[in-house]
């Protein structure tokens, strides 16, 4: 059998590309960059969506396990997720802290009026102050923050029933046991 180097060339190029692809794929953007895991939630001070005069900060995340959810009235996938968040709130599965991102107050409030408000508090992050510190790539994204205010998990994309049951709920239950 004659195999010339020239004939092998296409295969080599393809393999090199394939490897780059494969490595790229395993680097799922939804995996939390290690530098944020088990670190304290970034310091923030943001106005409340409903009341401009009230300032929300890290103290709102202390003392309970919280799901911090980044959303916006402009975001399509957030609509898909909304029903699930409403269910979590209704069944008191977890405290939800919303971050309304790159939005206008009116639209954000209208959105929550229309679909219901699952959040105990909603911070209004018009200029991506907190969102940049969190390294958010797109909405929706969710973080689980433990009682001490440390980030324990990051989820990119809508939370579905499946994701909640398999990935988030076990962690939340475990964190709630901790002092």
């Amino acid at each position: 059998m004659k195999i010339s180097l020239k004939a092998l060339l296409p295969l080599f190029i393809f393999l090199a590309l394939g490897i780059a692809f494969a490595v790229g794929l395993t680097k799922d953007p939804s995996i939390l960059p290690s530098q944020l895991i088990n670190r304290p939630f970034p310091q923030f001070e943001l106005p409340d969506l409903f009341d401009e005069t009230q300032i929300l900060d890290n103290r709102d995340l202390q003392g309970q396990v919280t799901l911090v959810n980044i959303f916006g009235s402009w975001c399509v996938a957030c609509g898909q997720e909304h029903g699930m968040l409403m269910k979590l709130a209704r069944e008191k599965e977890i405290v939800l802290f919303g971050v309304d991102w790159k939005d206008t107050r009116e639209k954000g409030m209208r959105w929550l009026e229309r679909g219901g408000n699952p959040y105990t508090r909603v911070a209004f992050d018009e200029d991506s102050k907190l969102v940049i510190d969190l390294g958010v790539t797109g909405a929706p994204e969710s973080f689980i923050v433990d009682k001490k205010g440390q980030i324990r998990y990051k989820h990119v994309g809508p939370i579905t029933e499946d994701i909640w049951e398999h990935d988030l709920k076990p962690l939340v239950l475990e964190l709630e046991q901790a002092p």
Binding site: M1, K2, I3, S4, K6, A7, P10, L11
Partner: peptide, 14 residues
């Protein structure tokens, strides 16, 4: 698919 086809090409190109 591609890897298989290109391997085949490498063997059969001659």
């Amino acid at each position: 698919a591609t890897g298989g086809a290109l391997s085949l090409y490498a063997v059969r190109a001659h």
